[in-house]
Simulated scan of single mutants.
Amino acid sequence: MKNNIVLIIFFCFFLSINSYSKGEKPSKPFIVVIDAGHGGKDSGNSWHGFYEKHIALDIALRVGKALEKFDNLKVIYTRKTDVFIPLHKRAEIANDADADLFVSIHCNGHNSSAHGTETFALGLHRNKDNLDIAMKENSVIYLEENYEVTYDGFDPKDPSSYIGMTLMQEEYLDQSILLADFIQKEYTNKLKRVDRGVKQAGFLVLRETFMPSVLTEIGFLSYKPEGSYLKSNKGKEQIAKSIQEGIINYKNSINHDFSNSTKIVDETLKVKDGYNDNYQGVTFKVQIAAGSTALETAPYNFKGLKGIERQKENKLYKYYYGNTSSHNKGKEFLAQAKAAGYKSSYLVAFKDGKKISVNEALKSPKK
C-alpha cells in the first residue's frame, strides 16, 4: 500500500515537471467585473413599484452565472446582495483584480414616456440629457462620508466638474465604445428594444477604473410597460443574455477566443504553406482610434500610417487601418499599428458592410 502511494506521488510529480518542461503555464483568465448599480440605502430609480437596485442586482447575477460557464473566464461581482457600495469602492474592486472589463448595470427613469436602452462610455456629455443622467447616477456620492475628499472636490451638480473627465479613460475609450456597441446591438437586433444609442457621459464609477468600462441603462422604470418587462423573469433573462453575449462578442472580436477554433486556424496557417485564409464577403480592418472630431486621414495625423479609413458611426468617427479578406494579413496590419504606437488598437471584421465579431468572420466560407 505504501509503495502504491509513493508511485502515485511520483507519477503526479512527473506530470507536473513534464508540463512545465513544455512551457505549458496556465494563462491568466479573462476577468470581467459585473457591477449591479445602487444597493442598500441607495435604491436608485423607483417607479410604479419597480426598484432599480433589485432589478440591476438580479440581472447582474444572471449575467455572471452565464459568463462563469466559459473556460478561462473569471467573474467578479461588486455586490451579490442588497448592500451599499461606494462608487470608488466598485472601481477599486475592478482595479485590484486587474480586470479586463468593467460593466455597470442600471435602470433609467424620466418624467416622460421615454423608453429604450442606451450604453455609455466615459466622456464629455454631448447634450443635456446625457449630463442629467450622469449627474443623477453620480449624486449617490452624497450618501458617502467625506465624499469631497474621496473624489477630489468633485461636485455631481456642477457641470464644470465634468470637464476633462475623458482623460482618465482615454487609453481605453476605443475598447469601451466597442463593448458598448456590441451590447447595444444585442438589445436592438435580437430583442428589438428601442435603441437610444452608444453615448459618452461623465460617470464617476467609470472614471475611476483602469480598463475598458461601460455603464448600460437597460430600460426606463418610469415607462410602465418597460418597467414590467424588466421586472419579469423573461425580461431579466433576455437582458442578461444580451449583456453576456455582448461581452463574449467583444472578447472574441479582440482575438481572445474562449474556444479552440481560432487557435486551430492559426496553427494550420503555420504548418500549411499557402493555406487559404481569405473569407468570402469578409473584410478585416484594424481600429486604431475613435472620437468626435473628423480628422483628415493623412499619414501625419496617424503616426505615419497610410491608407487610413474614416467612418462615422452615430456621433463618433472611427479610424481604420488596413483592408483585407485574409485573417493572417489582418493580424499583420494589427502588428504594424501597434508598432506605430497604437497599443490599444484591435482587429475588427465586417461582412457585407456590417460589423461582426472576428470569431463569426472565421466561420464564413473561404474564397
Rank of each mutant, 00 (worst) to 15 (best):
D129C: 03
E118Y: 12
E170F: 10
D158V: 03
R193Q: 14
Y151F: 04
K136Y: 14
F154L: 03
N189Q: 15
H125I: 13
H125L: 06
S161G: 02
I183S: 12
V140W: 01
I177Y: 10
V198F: 12
L124W: 12
N130L: 09
L131A: 15
K199R: 00
H125R: 00
K190W: 03
L143R: 15
E145N: 06
G202V: 10
K136S: 14
F203A: 05
K185E: 13
D181M: 04
E144R: 06
Y147T: 03
E118Q: 10
N127C: 14
S139H: 05
P156G: 14
K185P: 06
D152P: 07
N146T: 03
K157M: 13
Q200H: 09
Q175A: 01
E170R: 08
D158S: 08
L178M: 13
I133F: 12
F120T: 05
E171D: 11
G153T: 01
E118L: 02
S139P: 02
V140P: 00
H125W: 14
N130D: 15
P156S: 10
T166M: 11
L191W: 06
V194L: 09
K136Q: 07
D158G: 03
L173N: 07
K185C: 07
Q175N: 15
L179K: 09
M165Q: 09
S139A: 11
K199Q: 01
K185N: 11
T150A: 10
G164E: 15
L167P: 01
K185W: 00
E148H: 07
N189R: 12
P159M: 02
E137M: 10
L124A: 10
N130H: 12
E144D: 08
T166Q: 12
T117P: 08
I177L: 15
G164Q: 15
D195R: 09
N189C: 10
E148V: 15
A180M: 07
D155G: 01
F182T: 06
L179M: 12
P159H: 05
S160E: 14
G153V: 08
Y162P: 09
I133R: 03
K128Y: 06
E118P: 06
F154S: 01
P159L: 05
S176P: 04
M135D: 04
G202I: 09
G164A: 12
K157E: 06
A201V: 11
F120S: 15
T119V: 08
L191V: 05
A121K: 06
I177P: 10
H125T: 14
E186T: 03
L167W: 07
G164K: 08
E148N: 01
S160R: 13
A134Q: 07
K136M: 12
F120G: 02
D129Y: 11
E118S: 02
A134N: 04
K190Y: 10
N130E: 11
